[in-house]
Nucleic acid binder design. Structure first.
Lengths: 139, 139
DNA sequence: CTGACTGCAAACGTTTTGCACGGTA
DNA sequence: TACCGTGCAAAACGTTTGCAGTCAG
């Protein structure tokens, strides 16, 4: 919590209760959609508006504190920036998981290095069917 | 051209001049945005409407003939479905390239196989600075 | 000839903006 | 106290829908 406040101040973002709750929500639950954030915060702050969610997310994205995760077929999710990781999404139930995959060898392949392209970021999204949903489908 | 017509008929999509031009545009230029498609087709069909672009793209996406490519910071692009490949995007000039990267070993990693997740698709987007833009920045 | 496609306009959902008020630092 | 953040309402934006007319098969 203190760490979160310090991070916000470091980015010249004031520490308001709404903003603090938003960050904690993202930190605890990870990759949330706008709606999930909105309804979740609405329980703590009944008068909170969608505009506040948007403004805060955008401010934090501008400060590289939060990242948008674009996924196939569904709306974007938002998460606190952390070490490079990939996402796995089940097309049946929509469940999203983080996964640590070492892409360094892939990103150093000849095609890229020969082209002179300087890699800064990479995003890998794997979609398919999770274990539970496979079981359900077999029934 | 004949191949394109055959593909459309196979999917029960009628071959109209607008649709044919849209597909050829995608085939020749690859990963185009809605606006790029619109203005490009407007030169051939001055009365074409955005609704037609949207309806056609959606029909073709439903038939797995076209795919949406979601990219960081910019609007989605659309391309004709083809073999699995990744995308490289320059954050300076916005240039997008296809790249063939073998992700099979990555997708077979222990974390995924142990979880019982069945992988159906994967999308890797690499962003950074292209060779040309690196040169420009050094000036 | 029939059903599908086009193009226009309206509707819709999402995101952004402007502004007055309130809270942080 | 000065400025930033909040919340409301309105505006802007992108996309979808409904419909009448047209075209492909």
């Amino acid at each position: 919590m203190l760490a979160v406040e310090a991070m916000l101040r470091e980015k010249n973002l004031k520490v308001t209760p709404q903003r603090l709750a938003l960050v904690c929500e993202l930190r605890d639950k990870g990759h949330l959609s706008i709606e999930e954030l909105y309804y979740s915060l609405k329980s703590k702050f009944p008068s909170i508006s969608l505009a506040t969610i948007y403004k805060n997310l955008n401010a934090m994205i501008d400060n590289c504190f939060v990242e948008e995760v674009k996924l196939p077929n569904v709306k974007s999710r938002y998460e606190i920036s952390k070490d490079l990781h990939s996402h796995v999404i089940c097309q049946e139930c929509g469940k999203i998981c983080d996964i640590d995959i070492d892409l360094s060898s892939v990103l150093k392949c000849d095609t890229i290095s020969n082209s002179g392209f300087e890699v800064q970021k990479s995003a890998l999204v794997i979609s398919g069917t999770c274990c539970d949903c496979q079981a359900k489908k077999q029934k």
